[in-house]
Amino acid sequence: MNQTKSALAPQKPLSTERRDIWWLEPALVAIGFGLFIIYATWRAFENNFYEIGPYLSPFYSPKIVLDWWKFSPALLILWVPAGFRATCYYYRKAYYRAYFLSPPACGVGGINALGLSQGKKYCGESTFPLVIQNIHRYMLYLAIAVLGFLWYDAILACIWQNQLRIGVGSIIFIANCLFLSAYTFGCHVFRHLVGGKLDCFSCSQTAKTQFSLWEAVTKFNEHHMFWAWVSLFSVAITDFYVRLIASHSISDLTLIGPPL
């Protein structure tokens, strides 16, 4: 038997025998991310309507004011969540498929990751530039710090004139932080660091504690894609809500406490 004679030539880009609408998912992902990126970029550069009363937009938090910095303060902080999401294992899957067609869908011919080296040998994330994705754990550390600030903002969003005040905005802020936490603490790296790296979960008291943590993180990790999308939308909605109030397009409904 001649083993090599009939090895199939590599599948041509976008060729497939699939008959379902395989392009729908990457198309929706491409549109969803595209809309978010356009909105976030516009808002980051707008440098206006991001603060009103007890509310500070998550795009601008923590607010860093530097005399010599002449641009929007959002640019000083947005690279953290952007870098965190860009190196997230779920988002990598999503944009490799939707934007880099590597592959566009399963069983559909792809092009080389980044589309830059077509014709050359594919190396995936083993060489520069994509080997940089391995910094994801450092982005996680920074993202947890930023999440801390967002929780602080959410608490401040419930206080006005030194009194407890709950408005629609306060609820949106708290929901946003809950969704962001479900996303951040379901991170694959977090799952690895809290316990996944162990080979034995019962070998010591610390290992047992780590096992419980790992189990808890796994619960969120199993739905990481879901939380990635929910939190992406919730950040945008929170920012948009702040913009509506700050630009006086609508007013924030007070549910408990003094009006704004």
Binding site: Y96, S102, P103, G107, G124, S126, N221
Partner: peptide, 27 residues
């Protein structure tokens, strides 16, 4: 292992429902 770009097609086709990417490759 760096060649894998975690696009999850292996997980999609596995008849034993092994979470290949999430539970084996990423860890």
């Amino acid at each position: 292992i760096g060649f894998c770009n975690i696009t999850k097609c292996c997980t999609e086709v596995c008849p034993e429902d092994i979470h290949i990417t999430d539970n084996a490759i990423i860890p």
